[in-house]
Nucleic acid binder design. Structure first.
Lengths: 334, 334
DNA sequence: ACAGCGTGCGTAAACGATTACTTAGCTTTA
DNA sequence: TAAAGCTAAGTAATCGTTTACGCACGCTGT
């Protein structure tokens, strides 16, 4: 039916007896066209089932109205949900401004990520919002000449716009709360310390301890792979050192911890209290429901997109760096 | 530093003292170029920090190497994870074939979805893989002249390629298992019956009952909004009719059910057994761990992408429709 | 010695839009 | 009535590639 092959603005122009310029201006509303002519053009477009070729358009206008979001969206259940919420925030802003969102996955691997950036090439996107998988990498040489906004994480020595969570501060809140409830042996369970986020969370943990006059006990600090199994095993070894509370900076690892304690009849929170990162619906249905730190994922995306659009508007505006607050949600696990 | 503004193949050609054709052929390996010339060109590209303009390329070659995936990826935690797994599958295949994945969200709303399809325009993508939010809609007129593959769901009267889950069959398995364990009053808890998937799951439920000589009890069939709260409330009213088991076709609703029973000290599985759709890591840490139906989400994506690439290769190949099997994972909740 | 062929590369026309510059025709103004 | 101005729309260059042709040169065989 709708044979759409190769119908160009030229065909429409011929069919409507006007010039291509006029057709273009009707489509874009970029200059006055008399009502009569406008009607003729519209009718022609309808009859030919014309569809604008966005590729040609962006070649000429040097605008694609596409913003890419590069993050470890497919890496795990946790980061998946977190970054998809960020994506939702981005999308909500972009949509209002007629921009498209292109999601790319970095797999949380540097090489994979670099390859994705290369594939974006030049001109395909008007901007890149990314959560870098490494803080050591020098990304600058890979980027095209579009603006870049970092979200959730920032590489070292970056002088780009950024929107992140105030991890240190909310982590400190969480640990302080545990201390207020009488805990003195608070374990730290986390993934490897390679991301700025993780580092900040650890800093918050230490700060709370130190301000309460508690010394850091190396035996209670435990980092490992981010996975359920890893969380399970690390919890097992942690418990040998008799913590009364566990502060887990990763959701999946917290699951492992909960699973271990459930299987070994360790009462939460009576024997061991638990506070973990990331609010999910399921954290309300564990036994007991989990006390968690909720990150403003959606807002992170909203802000990042807003910053991006402003940057596109004005390349010379001053650096725009933002830090959003997390929120402690107290439930029965502590 | 890396001033990349406006470096085109022409600049490279001039700088290397060759023609643009040669540069293009070096980049794409599309015809023999002597080692010497090749080196010259490469060096020039390096020195100028040349980056191919993918927009111009796809304008000319009529190929964008972008496949769009349109699904309700941001709609809820459940569909989010499910469709992101599908996306991961798609991505894994596309990447091997040098294609890009562009994720678009349909918000599970028809108008939103249509708008997204329109925005894709023509020529921007080489193909569209989608999970339609409605089976009634006539999407055909909206599509450009790219191939379309439906995944997970298929609209009525579609004669497009498709890849879906055999929902009826695995749902039947699950209910049969409950029956074998002696259950006779099995409740059905589900979202609204507007998707083919939901419909198929209900059919499987009914079929298992009927083959076991059990009559459908309307009081035990309960559909409502897909949300934790809704699951919670519907479970409350369901329990008035004394089911001994609940079959939940949605993950979030199952969470609501679990939460209600937990809060009201209803023992699972002793008083009420539970079987629910969708395997997540957290289903292993509830008390007790949940028996679930695992959908082959990743494989769904893989297959869909394969089908897409074949279709792109050969527009006239016969219709390619696939049905993948789900898997029942039995844990302590039943 | 020259027709014929293979090799390596250059020339220039697309692809389908946007848009700076013109232009034709009409109205106003002095 | 002629110059100036205004209105609506047309002409054609341009964005950066790909690719169908064509060409020059050197080698081969007779």
């Amino acid at each position: 039916m709708s044979e759409n092959k190769n119908i160009s603005i030229k065909d429409v122009a011929k069919h409507a007896n006007v010039s291509t310029a006029t057709v273009s201006h009707v489509i874009n509303g970029t200059r006055f066209v008399s009502e009569d002519t406008k009607q003729k053009v519209m009718r022609a477009m309808d009859e030919l089932n014309y569809r604008v070729n966005v590729v040609a358009r962006s070649l000429r206008s040097r605008k694609s109205y596409v913003i890419a979001f590069l993050a470890p969206i497919l890496a795990s259940e946790t980061s998946n949900h977190f970054f998809m919420s960020v994506a939702a925030g981005i999308q909500s802003v972009l949509k209002q401004n007629q921009y498209h969102l292109m999601l790319s996955d970095s797999h949380e691997e540097e090489e994979f990520e670099k390859e994705e950036i290369r594939m974006l090439g030049s001109q395909m996107i008007d901007g890149l919002i990314m959560a870098p998988s490494s803080r050591e990498t020098d990304y600058e040489q890979l980027f095209g000449d579009y603006p870049v906004v970092y979200v959730d994480r920032v590489p070292n020595n970056s002088d780009r716009d950024s929107v992140v969570v105030d991890n240190r501060s909310v982590s400190k809140d969480a640990v302080e709360m545990l201390i207020r409830r009488g805990h003195k042996r608070i374990a730290y369970l986390s993934g490897p310390n390679t991301l700025t986020t993780t580092e900040e969370r650890f800093a918050g943990y230490l700060e709370a301890l130190s301000e309460a006059g508690l010394a850091e006990d190396k035996e209670l600090v435990c980092t490992g792979e981010v996975s359920l199994d890893s969380g399970y095993k690390l919890t097992e070894s942690l418990l040998a050192h008799k913590p009364t509370a566990i502060f887990a900076t990763d959701n999946v690892m917290a699951m492992g911890a909960m699973m271990y304690m459930q299987e070994n009849q360790i009462k939460v929170p009576d024997q061991v209290a638990v506070v973990a990162y990331d609010e999910f619906q399921w954290t309300r249905v564990t036994t007991p429901p989990l006390t968690v730190i909720e990150q403003p994922a959606f807002d992170l995306g909203v802000k990042a997109a807003e910053v991006m659009l402003e940057r596109i508007d004005n390349a010379d505006a001053p650096l725009s760096q933002h830090r959003l607050s997390g929120k402690l949600i107290v439930r029965q696990s502590c």
